[in-house]
């Protein structure tokens, strides 16, 4: 029975390859109306995430590709169940944003056996078998940290010493690790920068506020706050204002994400600089799906276009921002 199933899977895999080859052979613009994509989202925990979902849904609708969407409510078990059901439905491509890094080998083996290519969005997985997914579409967190560091160096070019306070994201999370590493590497070669403290603000406003409140007492002379997301930056701003200082003036603030609330604070001059972390992955994902199903090779790692914002750029960009 198991052998028969294996043969069946092999035939299905061959058929997929043949079909894909067939389409590629036709050249020009292969029809995409028959494609069905299964997308397993993490959840709807933040405004970043909801913008990500909305963009992916509208991109597929626009491209005329059927999208089967599922929300895992932050639970890996739900996501695995969703992927299994996509495999049974024989969708053309499975895309998902993994809740956690590990524990995906079994279900992705099943997808592989069924000949369904897998694309990771936003977050990464850890596995010993690189053939389990075709490509990962998502931001490079280390690069985001580096961009923040580059701006800090430029902004404080004339200063003789700069005291920096880091408000980190949840300890151990991939964005927190990358954003710390990139930033500290970038300013590390300039001895005038000293990091007075680096504290966990848990990616929340309340966390950012309490860290900043305590640090303002311990280091009232801090020059620059590097908050690893907009929510913590907004909390820090509140604490700075509570201390009677002006955020963005006496104490400069750098943040990452570029969500709507963060961009408004930037436009008001309370944040000085934001490094974007782009949730609008829809169009790129549609392109990838078309390429993969057409049998074309795609790079293992694709980064979405991401920019940085100063106050003027934020004012200009705000009216047309999607999130």
């Amino acid at each position: 029975m198991s052998r028969r199933r294996l043969i069946g899977a092999a035939i299905a895999a061959c058929a997929t390859i043949l079909l894909a080859g067939c389409q590629a052979g036709h050249g020009g613009s292969p029809g995409t109306s028959h494609l069905v994509v299964g997308f397993a989202q993490v959840g709807a925990e933040s405004s970043w995430r909801t913008a990500n979902t909305k963009d992916i849904e509208s991109a597929f609708q626009h491209a005329g590709i059927t999208l089967r969407f599922s929300d895992a409510e932050q639970q890996q078990a739900n996501q695995i169940a969703a992927i299994r059901s996509y495999i049974q439905q024989r969708v053309s491509v499975i895309a998902f944003s993994p809740v956690v890094e590990s524990g995906w080998d079994t279900v992705l083996q099943e997808a592989k056996a069924a000949g369904i290519p897998v694309i990771l969005t936003d977050r990464a997985i850890s596995t010993d078998d690189p053939s389990l997914y075709v490509t990962r579409l998502g931001s490079d967190f280390t690069k985001e940290g580096e961009k923040a560091g580059v701006w800090a160096k430029k902004e404080f070019a004339a200063a003789s010493s700069v005291k920096v306070l880091e408000i980190e994201g949840t300890t151990g999370s991939a964005p927190a690790i990358g954003r710390t590493k990139g930033f500290e590497k970038e300013i590390g070669d300039d001895s005038k920068f000293s990091i007075v403290d680096s504290q966990d603000g848990g990616f929340t406003r309340a966390g950012g506020e309490q860290v900043m409140e305590a640090q303002l007492k311990a280091h009232p002379d801090v020059d620059l706050v590097y908050a690893q997301n907009d929510d913590m930056a907004l909390g820090a701003i509140q604490a700075i204002e509570g201390a009677g200082e002006r955020p963005g003036k006496q104490i400069k603030v750098i943040s990452v994400d570029a969500t709507h609330d963060g961009m408004e604070a930037l436009a008001q001059g309370k944040i000085n600089f934001i490094v974007e972390c782009n949730p609008l992955l829809g169009d790129e994902l549609v392109k990838l799906v078309k390429k993969v199903t057409a049998g074309k090779s795609v790079p293992r790692r694709i980064e979405p276009p991401e920019r940085t914002f100063t106050q003027e750029q934020a004012i200009a960009a705000l009216p047309t921002r999607k999130y």
Binding site: T171, D197, S198, Q199, G202, Q210, V211, A214, K217
Partner: peptide, 13 residues
């Protein structure tokens, strides 16, 4: 205790 953690720079864990 929570405030001490922030002041002393003790990791939350």
């Amino acid at each position: 205790l929570t405030a001490t953690a922030y002041t002393a720079g003790i990791a939350p864990g």
